[in-house]
Amino acid sequence: MTTYVLVPGFWLDGSAWDAVAADLRSRGHAVTAVELGHAPGDTAESHVDDVLAALVPAGEPVVLVGHSGGGPVCAAAAERARDRVAHLVFVDTGPLPDGTAQIDFNPPEVQERIRGAIEEHGTGQPMPSREELTAIGSSTDGIPDAVFDDVRARSLVEPAGAVLTGVRRGEPDPTLPKTVVACSFAPDQVRPLIDEGVPGFAEMGGPEWSFVALPTGHWPMFSEPEKLAAVLGALS
């Protein structure tokens, strides 16, 4: 049995992982879905604390899985609790350099849209519409309309501090296996970015990194939950 700790991306709570978690549990694994804080004062750093709280030092080290905006948070958590993590998994995401905010990983026109949404709301960024997500490069391919509508209806406002601030990075451990589940991009698109030293990709060039293709949109827990669970299960 392997223990999986699943961390959602922006706007999602732990229930985003329900289908994946149920599949993994049916395979005999233990699963914890982390609830990240969504109070107005929460930040990327407080989200790291949320993940660390889930890494209770009991039993065997876990497979730590971060989706989208949860990926950089998991990278920092794994560096601070290395003894608690056996495998680090990035679902359609990756680590970011020290202090780099999620918004910084977007082109200027997308940053402008995001800042405008935060300013209009006041304390954070509400989940965009399907059309808006497509416009900012977050593919919703494969998600049935009814499922997307339900997800958005239950979505949480992402605190401004989680969008606009980064996390403190430690020293990545080259002995920790790291896997990228590539959904809205292909693994062979990553190598040139690694070679060019593009932030968010540069550190993926080490031998501890592997890539698994799961072609779908950016939200595989909704579009391909069984296939995602199978990929994660194969890492145990």
Rank of each mutant, 00 (worst) to 15 (best):
A81H: 01
P40I: 02
S46W: 04
V34L: 05
T140E: 07
V85H: 03
S26T: 15
A54N: 11
V51D: 00
S68Q: 03
G122A: 14
L36M: 05
D145M: 08
S26A: 14
R82H: 00
R113N: 01
G9D: 05
S46T: 15
Q125I: 04
H38K: 11
V110Q: 10
P126A: 12
A30T: 15
V56S: 04
F148A: 08
A39N: 07
H67F: 00
Q111P: 12
P107T: 12
G122S: 12
G99H: 03
R25D: 04
S129C: 10
H38D: 08
E120P: 01
A81Y: 05
E112Q: 12
P8W: 03
V110D: 07
V89M: 09
V34K: 02
T32Q: 11
R25T: 14
V7S: 05
S15N: 07
V34D: 08
S15K: 08
D23Q: 10
D50P: 02
A78M: 03
A16R: 00
D50T: 02
A30V: 07
D92C: 13
R115I: 04
L133A: 03
H29F: 04
I118P: 01
A81V: 11
G124A: 12
A117E: 11
Q102W: 15
R130V: 08
D42G: 04
P126C: 13
L24G: 08
A77C: 05
R27C: 10
V48T: 13
P108W: 12
F105C: 15
G59I: 12
E60A: 15
A16I: 06
P61I: 06
G116F: 00
C74G: 02
V34M: 00
V91M: 06
A81C: 01
E35T: 14
A22V: 04
I118M: 06
C74A: 09
D42K: 01
D23T: 14
E131R: 10
I118S: 06
A146V: 15
F10N: 11
V7Q: 07
P97K: 01
I114P: 04
H38Y: 13
E79I: 05
G122T: 08
S15Q: 10
R113T: 07
P144G: 11
I114L: 14
A86T: 01
N106V: 15
E119I: 09
V62M: 08
V31Y: 01
A39E: 12
D23Y: 04
H38N: 10
S68V: 06
D49H: 12
A30S: 15
A44E: 06
H29E: 14
A58G: 13
F90H: 14
A58W: 01
R27F: 12
G71I: 11
I136L: 05
P95Q: 08
V31R: 00
F10W: 13
A75L: 03
L12T: 10
P61K: 07
V7H: 07
R25L: 04
R113Y: 13
H121S: 13
G124C: 02
D83N: 00
A33C: 15
G137S: 11
P126N: 09
D83F: 01
E119F: 06
S68F: 00
G137D: 08
G142D: 04
V65W: 06
V51K: 00
L12R: 11
G37E: 08
V110R: 11
P144L: 06
D141C: 02
F105S: 15
H87Y: 09
